[in-house]
Write a protein that binds this DNA or RNA. Structure first.
Length: 861
RNA sequence: GCCCCAGUGGCGAAAUGGUAGACGCGGCAGACUCAAAAUCUGUUGUCGAGAGACGUGUUGGUUCGAGUCCGACCUGGGGCACCA
């Protein structure tokens, strides 16, 4: 019996699919009866080589794509490259390779590797975001947004990554470090381009309610990130003589109910009032300078120390004109949240309390905890933030917190001292990057006209090729000619914007471009209307806030721009887990070793070269630094793409991390061969001579086949690929009950049916193998063209049931009944069962609970 | 600190409130082999010779019945974090 040889078989079938054009997307109009299905995996960054995480991601998407295609859907399953970004420039600086050459070379080799996986991708739609044809269209819609006021420029304090020498968005700063470089981020004042994502804050929250095929976790993370809070803006009038333009201070609060507990008003160090007061007060100026020193504030935040300085100003309490509150500048107040100013209520806010204790400000409790004694209640080291009843609060006395908030806001509005307000944590999206390898921002700066949009006929604004990377920083700024152009408006001397767009802009609309990647306009609306939204999007959870929020925003902005019809880009989202692996270090010196550098020797692990003992470390995400990576190419070479795909899908649920193990891969390798052997053993002509007339046994296999079709289909639909593969194993194990050698025509016929179904059930997971099996069975055409097997619900249901019988909740026996037997029948059988009667001896039956086709429980005592 | 999620054999894991541990890995025993590898067969939660008992992080509850639902706690993971 020849062994199945993936090395020979896999390229042959990929070639056959290619020649047949199996994965070209059908034209929508050609077959409108077929429902559309758009399946997309997050496109890769062309780093140079695919890793196991890609294998898992694209294997999952391919299961869905092949499954839906077999079910008769019109499937769009494209692939492209998220190709702009820092690593290309790093390569240029380190190795003198041009970013463009580096990127396109990487794309070429990764494309080859991905193709080895046998993905059902329509490669004719491929593009890279660094293609001028793509980023030129991006510039076009960017300018549409610019004209509509969704793009603006402002000077602001930005996150500056000193290693990458560029600005980062808030979403890209993780624990104070740049998301890519890992360097401590500094504060800098720069003029930047922003996208008005905050205009869509409410819509982006509301939209989450419609995304019922998204993980709750991701929706929650986005909701928290947008951070909607309801409260009030409130004006405090400055008492006595006020500096010009600062007659009042507007604060934002979510606790207007605690206003009677106020003991100070504070502003952020960046607040205009702080700067104004600093002008005439060296102490204030020194404090502001200290806060500005940026880096230092990191340590302060860790320590949580609340510091501030008194400005000497006082404000009038809006509800009690006789009361005066000091105005302070404090380090814990953020300029870009709310109004950059607060009123401090130490009794009911921990930060305010810490501050008040340090500067000996009064603490007035105004919310009494349930059951508290108003005379005895004190706030010591901990602010009281729980529910309760207002006291010491004039017209609010006796109200609970929520009604008190409403009453306070009503009074404030009545007085004209402010109004109810909603504030978001979300900030506008800073998209300027001081980099070369990105989409140029299509703006010309003119001394006379200001920033002017590049006219449509001059797009794309292409990156110049002749740039030098001998120094850090942005080469566009140093290019001798590129940025010097005439102002499109007045013809006078102008200068191109040298910042490029954040690469997250590139990835926030590529899914729409895939629907017609060669359209003259950015998006061919008629075609996009057919395909959008993406029905199933698959990628890592690390993009829960970044990419997925930006893409939702851009989709809405483009809809309002008339380029798209949908509000949400991704109807279904699946976040897959990572691929992990054991780590290995030399015990003596702690050096990390790759799996290929170690071997077992005398019952322990040693480094192959030196023979030094090796310790097995933690199971962690595959990474170069821990050396625990397994190269997909090597696995394709040794075990084939099908076994690799089966393994990354079979060993853990798709949303959880999967641990790569050599033995697990061997298991999938065995599965491949077991499946093939089953087909190989099946006679080409099933009508062999035999006296076997066992129609009952054939019928049994027939039913098992239908049960398997049902369970595999449901598992794929539910994204339980590990369970789907387990059902395939069960089916194979069960097939041993019907061996070819002992089968007559009836059973062989049932076997043919079983194998025909099996080939199709295997196809989404191990497509090359499935083709080989399909051909071996003598079926027509290829599996890719075959319809998904359909099960007969009646056959899929068991006709006989084995029901466990419990006595007082403990399993005491089992009975066999026909499926659907009535409670009375089942009860009679159960009570007649000898085993059960033994347990009932000396007891009287009080109650019998029968759950149809499930269980019997006899309550006795 | 706040918000989420998860704790099940030696390991990865299954289980619409209804036989806990499907399926895989590993282990053990056997077949084939001069031998090994590969392959195949059987077996494998714990205790117990057996009958049986006990078992899903801990603990309390709801229920005829709880891995699953509810309360408290413990542990691990993730997100957010001077957000007023």
């Amino acid at each position: 019996m020849p062994r199945y040889n993936p090395k020979e078989s896999e390229p042959r079938w990929r070639d056959a699919w290619n020649r047949a054009g199996s994965f070209l997307t059908p034209e929508p109009a050609a077959d409108e009866a077929r429902p559309k299905y758009y399946v997309l995996e997050m496109f890769p960054y062309p780093s140079g080589a695919i890793h196991m995480g890609h294998v898992r991601n694209y294997a999952m998407g391919d299961v869905v794509a092949r499954f839906k295609r077999a079910q008769g859907f019109n499937v769009l399953h494209p692939m492209g490259w998220d190709a702009f970004g820092m690593p290309a420039e790093n390569a240029a600086m380190e190795r003198g390779v041009h970013p463009k050459a580096w990127t396109y070379q990487n794309i070429a080799s990764m494309r080859d590797q991905l193709k080895q996986l046998g993905l059902s991708i329509d490669w004719s739609r491929e593009f890279a975001t660094c293609d001028p044809a793509y980023y030129g269209r991006q510039q076009a819609w960017f300018l549409d947004l610019f004209r509509r006021g969704l793009v603006y420029r402002k000077e602001g304090v930005v996150n500056w990554d000193p290693v990458d020498m560029t600005v980062l968005a808030n979403e890209q700063v993780i624990d104070g470090m740049g998301w890519r470089s890992g360097a401590a981020v500094e504060k800098r004042k720069l003029t930047q381009w922003f996208l008005r994502i905050t205009d869509y804050a409410d819509a982006l929250i509301e939209g989450l309610n419609t995304l019922n095929r998204w993980p709750d976790k991701v929706r929650l993370m986005q909701e928290n990130w947008i951070g909607k809070s309801r409260g009030a803006r409130l004006i405090f009038r400055v008492a006595g003589e006020a500096p010009e333009g600062f007659e009042s201070i507007e604060v934002y609060t979510t606790r207007p109910d605690t206003l009677f507990g106020a003991s100070f008003v504070g502003v952020a160090p960046d607040h205009p009032l702080a700067e104004r007061m600093g002008a005439g007060n060296p102490e204030v100026a020194a404090f502001i300078a200290e806060c500005r020193r940026g880096g230092a504030s990191e340590a302060d935040i860790e320590a949580g120390e609340k510091k501030g300085v008194f400005t000497g100003l006082e404000v009038v309490h809006p509800f009690d004109p006789a009361r005066r509150l000091p105005v302070v500048v404090a380090n814990f107040i953020l300029m870009d949240y709310g109004t950059g100013a607060i009123f401090g209520c130490p009794a009911h806010d921990q930060r305010d309390l810490d501050f008040a204790r340090k500067y000996a400000l009064p603490v007035h409790p105004v919310v009494l905890p349930p059951g508290g004694d108003p005379a005895a209640f004190r706030v010591e080291d901990e602010a009281y933030v729980g529910p309760g009843t207002l006291f010491n609060s004039d017209f609010l006395d006796g109200l609970a917190v929520e009604p008190a908030k409403a009453a306070a806001v009503a009074r404030i509005e009545e007085m004209g001292a402010g109004k109810g307000a909603t504030v978001y944590r979300l900030r506008d999206w800073g998209v300027s990057r001081q980099r070369y390898w990105g989409c140029p921002i299509p703006i010309v700066h003119c001394a006379k006209c200001g920033p002017v949009a590049v006219p449509a006929e001059q797009l794309p604004v292409e990156l110049p090729d002749d740039v030098a990377f001998d120094r850090p920083g942005n080469p566009l700024l140093r290019h001798p000619t590129w940025r010097h152009v005439a102002c499109p408006q007045c013809g006078g001397p102008g200068e191109r914007e040298t910042d490029t767009l954040d690469t997250f802009v590139d990835s926030s609309w590529y899914f729409a471009r895939f629907t017609d990647p060669t359209a003259a306009e950015p998006i061919n609306r008629a075609v996009a209307d057919y395909w959008m939204p993406v029905d199933q999007y698959i990628g890592g959870v690390e993009h829960a806030v970044l990419h997925l929020l930006y893409a939702r925003f851009v989709t809405r902005a483009l809809k309002d721009d008339g380029l798209l019809s949908v509000e949400e880009p991704f109807a279904g989202l699946f976040t897959q887990g990572m691929v992990t692996h054991e780590t290995y270090r030399v015990s003596a010196d702690g050096r990390w070793l790759t799996p290929s550098e170690i071997e077992p020797r005398d019952g322990r692990l040693v480094e192959s070269v030196t023979g030094l003992p090796v310790e097995i470390g933690g199971v962690e995400k595959m990474s170069k630094s821990k050396k625990n990576v397994v190269a997909p190419e090597e696995i394709f070479d040794s075990h084939g793409a099908d076994a690799s795909r089966l393994f990354v899908l079979s060993d853990s649920p798709p949303d959880r991390d999967v641990q790569w193990t050599a033995s697990g891969l061997e298991g999938s390798w065995r599965l491949v061969h077991r499946i093939w052997n089953e087909f190989d053993a099946h006679p080409a002509d099933p009508f062999i001579e035999s006296d076997d007339q066992d129609a009952d046994r054939a019928a049994e296999l027939h039913r098992l086949t239908h049960r398997t079709i049902k369970s595999v289909t449901e598992a794929i639909e539910g994204f339980r690929f590990n369970s789907a593969i387990a059902r395939l194993y069960e089916f194979l194990n069960a097939l041993k009950t019907w061996p070819v050698e002992a089968s007559g025509p009836a059973v062989l016929g049932a076997r043919t049916e079983a194998l025909s179904a099996l080939a199709r059930l295997v196809a989404p997971f191990a497509p090359h193998l499935a083709e080989e099996c399909w051909a071996r069975l003598g079926e027509e055409g290829m599996v890719v063209e075959a319809a998904w097997p359909v099960y007969d619900p009646e056959l899929a249901a068991e006709n006989e049931r084995v029901l466990p019988v419990q006595v007082n909740g403990k399993r005491r026996g089992e009975i066999r009944v026909v499926a659907g037997a009535s409670a009375a029948e089942v009860e009679a059988v159960a009570l007649a069962d000898a085993e059960v009667r033994r347990y009932l001896e000396g007891m009287s039956v009080r109650k019998v609970i029968v759950v149809q086709d499930r269980i019997v429980n006899i309550v006795a005592g």
